[in-house]
């Protein structure tokens, strides 16, 4: 039925007497074009998502320009200003949480990627029960942060937790992993590495398996050791996988809220683990400082866009979008 016409641009030239007929013809053709017929398919999901994501962001930005706070009062949009942003830049809590956010992002992402790469190379060798082992390595990723936070709370328990019991074998500890402000951020990062390294492994494994086998063979014929082969030949080709994994992990670290909330059971987490994401939710839903938290949310959004935009540009350049 449908004549495949991308647009109406290809219509034949018009003579004056047939203008109206031609106009109808064009309309008829346009209504049968792939654009119009595929319109409901992409436009309905797109507009639902667009309202939620971009409508939400726009509205959030508007709220951040007001003084909106408290319950059940409408924000006053009449005199928008940047007061909330000025307040945020001077707020010691914002400075501390920004610093913690960066520590979390960098340490968590780096270690998770290295461990994930190591595990991927490990499982890419011929070992028995490979699928079963991969399933166990990835298992934490199938669990909710609410659930894993409970497990780690118990692991880190001062008197009876497994971590201190194991260290006790070597005559170390016990350490107060959660209660000690110097240790708590490291403890949280370690638990998150546990949860996410299986994910990094899966991404790297997919990258490794897309490489042709003969490269490895060729390097072996040349007499290169296994380590050298990976270091010089294989790992440089995993750039695309590395970039993807790094972006996902960075973005996760930026918005990590659930694990922290669940571990400490409240909006106010220890200052050493307080990140922008937890500060924002606390300001909004515990203290009802809606406008102020909207401003912090905008800062988070800008930070995430600073990661996403170069990533999408890179993907586009690689032709992998």
């Amino acid at each position: 039925m449908a004549r495949s016409e991308d647009t109406v641009a290809g219509s034949p030239p018009v003579s004056a007497s047939t203008t109206s007929e031609d106009w109808r013809d064009r309309l008829h053709r346009f209504s049968k074009s792939d654009f119009v017929r595929s319109f409901p398919y992409w436009f309905i999901p797109f507009s639902i998502m667009g309202l939620g994501v971009y409508g939400g962001i726009g509205w959030n930005t508007l709220i951040s320009l007001t003084d909106y706070e408290g319950f059940r009062e409408r924000p006053d949009f009449t005199s928008p200003d940047l007061e909330m942003y000025a307040q945020a830049l001077q707020d010691p809590a914002v400075i501390v949480t920004t610093k913690n956010t960066f520590i979390l992002m960098i340490v968590f992402t780096t270690v998770t990627m290295l461990l994930g790469l190591f595990l991927a190379i490990l499982l890419d060798r011929e070992i028995r029960f490979k699928e079963k082992i991969q399933t166990i390595y990835l298992l934490p990723m199938a669990l909710s942060f609410v659930v894993t936070a409970q497990f780690w709370l118990w692991m880190y328990n001062v008197n009876n937790g497994l971590v201190n019991v194991l260290l006790g074998v070597f005559g170390l500890g016990p350490y107060n992993w959660i209660g000690n402000p110097d240790l708590v951020l490291g403890s949280v990062i370690f638990a998150l590495i546990w949860q996410f390294s299986g994910y990094a492994m899966v991404v790297f494994l997919a990258g490794l398996q897309s490489l042709p086998d003969d490269q490895f063979e060729a390097a072996r014929v040349d007499g290169a050791s296994t380590f050298k082969t990976y270091w010089r030949v294989i790992i440089p080709q995993l750039k695309s996988s590395s970039v993807s994994a790094a972006v996902i992990l960075l973005i996760f670290a930026l918005k990590a809220f659930t694990f922290l909330y669940s571990m400490f059971g409240q909006y106010r987490v220890p200052q050493a683990t307080d990140i922008l994401a937890t500060l924002m939710v606390r300001e909004a839903f515990q203290l009802q400082n809606w406008a102020y938290s909207a401003a912090i949310a905008t800062i988070l959004l800008v930070m995430s866009l600073a990661i996403i935009a170069p990533y999408l540009h890179y993907q586009h350049k690689q032709g992998s979008l």
């Binding site: 994501v53 918005k255 939710v281 809606w290 949310a297 959004l301 995430s304």
Partner: peptide
Amino acid sequence: FLVGIFIPYQAVLVP
């Protein structure tokens, strides 16, 4: 659509 995957939900929580 892709940007919609990555944005932190904190950016839309208040609205």
